[in-house]
Design a protein around this nucleic acid. Sequence first.
DNA 1: AGGCTAACTGAACATTCGTTCAGAAAAAAG
DNA 2: CTTTTTTCTGAACGAATGTTCAGTTAGCCT
Lengths: 195, 195
Amino acid sequence: MARTQGSHSDITGPRIRSAALKLFAQQGYAAVSVRQIAKEVGVQAGALYNYIPDKQSLLLSLMEGHMREVLAAWEALEKPDDAMGLLESFVRFHIRFHMQRSDEVFIAYMELRNLSDENFATIEALRRAYEDALETVLKQGVEAGQFTLPDTKIATLAVIAMLNGVMTWYRSGGRLSLDEVETVYWDMVRKSVTT
Amino acid sequence: MARTQGSHSDITGPRIRSAALKLFAQQGYAAVSVRQIAKEVGVQAGALYNYIPDKQSLLLSLMEGHMREVLAAWEALEKPDDAMGLLESFVRFHIRFHMQRSDEVFIAYMELRNLSDENFATIEALRRAYEDALETVLKQGVEAGQFTLPDTKIATLAVIAMLNGVMTWYRSGGRLSLDEVETVYWDMVRKSVTT
DNA sequence: AGGCTAACTGAACATTCGTTCAGAAAAAAG
DNA sequence: CTTTTTTCTGAACGAATGTTCAGTTAGCCT
């Protein structure tokens, strides 16, 4: 046997990516074998190499794709222009967007150490760009006298870390709706940056 | 050759644990081989099995040991009895303690998925106990009218996530001293839980 | 109908993995 | 000094790893 029924590049390619995404998030990059990914797709291990140069490139591609999507989504969002409204937009956007892609987020934050130095630098630059988006908002608020912060850089990291925490515990169908969670977090963030 | 000069169970045991700790934190449990740990200790791979039943037990032991130490250290701490003072104590304790053991923390939060179901439950229970310590403080503050929180459970998780964020970026010798960092975070936490 | 090519199989490759164990040597006990 | 015990070596085990590739077939084109 060789080429199987209904096989198609357009289909197999994305399926490899989504299978890898799910498995990497579940078990970690190093713990997932190429054969495991192939099995999930329903194909032999060797077939993957028609789509990826090697395992590490697959990881990089997943991470880089995710980071670029986050940035693009934030850029594309319609935003108010006062700092307070911007910050609320960011908080709600971050929680909503990241909750919809918890696997991608998990990988992007956990598998950095499995990247080569060069690839690491690539991803790190993208993450910094996203952090800068928030810091810009905070700086604007400080200048306008709306926020009181001794250090916008630390505040940026603190807020993002806090928001990322949602993904470690929130499960849809739980006690609170996603909208309620957004509001609770926005409340805490707002208070933490104002006087 | 067999037993080498100066070999001693009392020495090799801890050295295995600390080598494993360092390597697991650096590269992840799944990516570190038993032979790598052995090399770091300066011993052959087989020798490790005089000290551990298997690789997984080593991971569990490291995680469990850490969690118990955190809990014990918090219990042993001398604390004020008003909620505000307690919360400040917790924030400063958490940052200081966890910064001194960043490897342990990293492992305890990242390698949960490499644990068997039973072992996972053990660690999860210990983590919950620590979270409860903070939630108790928050509840006390809410009852006393000092804190304003719609949901102490979420607030607990949000605060811990925020504090844990320090470890992803703080490096000693940087722009701020650990004490200053503590103060900045305490400021944000205090404001986020009060009106 | 027949040929072409894209898509996949299945076997093989050298390495590495976690783990076991008989035996050797150092340290402790007598 | 001799014996016992503790601690480690070195080789071996089968299984699994990432990756390559010649061969086979399904779907498209003419």
